[in-house]
């Protein structure tokens, strides 16, 4: 694609693009939250969205699913608006977004991922539970299937959410900070699964906080601080200069991160 393509000619191309955001501006009360955001995501990618707190990362994902009103812009998912293609999108919200005291088992939560396929008024069958159980095994918490969700650790809760997204069998996954406050084993398990998903040709867009793992986890990154600071392949975009532009002049974070990485390597 080049800049010369016309609007009419792009629909076919867009259909293969998991996500295409043009000219997106979201404003809340008097504040712009994100402005002039544009980027495309091509299939089979793990994309990281990185930026400081309040940079509008979650808002960006929510805007993709029409969960927040936008001031301008167009978003298409596989060439269509979200409403017409929502079955192809799997969303993993932040853990705090649900009540973990709710009286359901881990298996019940994962089965919810299948509700979209089951349809109105039809019961959940044993076959659905088996699919859910497989997904739980895949994320490594098959033994916890019958526990109530409040008995899970933070990492296990995150795995539950991931399993729920897995059974949805979507083509584009949006994950809001899946690595926040999880143990190292869970983080490893999640990234393994994301890589398997990429192998299967799926696309995942992940909001991520831990700068020093970005280069190993993601094929490409979007550096966001209200507007897109830089985006592209991780190798070329994830530079110290761009990070400084994203996180502000005083970038001690990256130094800290590399230092922490070195420390960890020493202890291993």
């Amino acid at each position: 694609m080049t800049s010369a393509t016309t609007t009419s000619g792009t629909t076919a191309d867009n259909a293969s693009l998991p996500l295409s955001i043009q000219d997106l501006t979201v404003a809340w009360h008097r504040k712009p939250v994100i402005w002039d955001v544009e980027f495309d995501v091509s299939p089979g990618q793990l994309v990281g969205i990185v930026g400081p707190n309040g940079a509008g990362k979650s808002t960006l994902l929510k805007a993709v699913m029409d969960l927040v009103p936008r001031a301008s812009g167009r978003i298409s998912i596989f060439g269509k608006p979200w409403k017409q293609n929502r079955n192809r999108v799997g969303y993993v919200p932040q853990r705090e977004s649900v009540d973990w005291d709710f009286p359901v088992s881990v298996l019940d939560v994962v089965t919810m991922g299948l509700y979209g396929q089951i349809g109105w008024c039809r019961p959940v069958t044993r076959r659905h539970r088996e699919i859910a159980r497989e997904a739980l095994d895949r994320v490594g918490i098959g033994d916890f299937a019958d526990r109530q969700i409040s008995q899970l650790s933070g990492g296990q809760q995150q795995r539950t959410f991931l399993a729920r997204a897995l059974v949805q069998n979507a083509d584009l996954y949006l994950l809001d900070e899946p690595f926040a406050a999880v143990d190292a084993a869970t983080e490893q398990a999640i990234i393994e699964i994301l890589r398997e998903m990429r192998q299967a040709g799926k696309t995942a867009i992940v909001i991520h906080h831990d700068l020093h793992t970005v280069p190993t986890y993601f094929d490409s990154v979007v550096l966001l601080n209200m507007r897109v600071v830089a985006q592209g392949p991780t190798a070329s975009v994830f530079t110290r200069e761009n990070l400084e532009r994203t996180y502000g002049g005083r970038l001690t974070l990256l130094d800290e991160a590399t230092e922490a990485m070195r420390r960890r390597e020493r202890t291993l």
Partner: peptide, 12 residues
Amino acid sequence: GTSGAWQGSAGA
């Protein structure tokens, strides 16, 4: 018509 041509900032 399509998408983000945005220059300069990203090294890529």
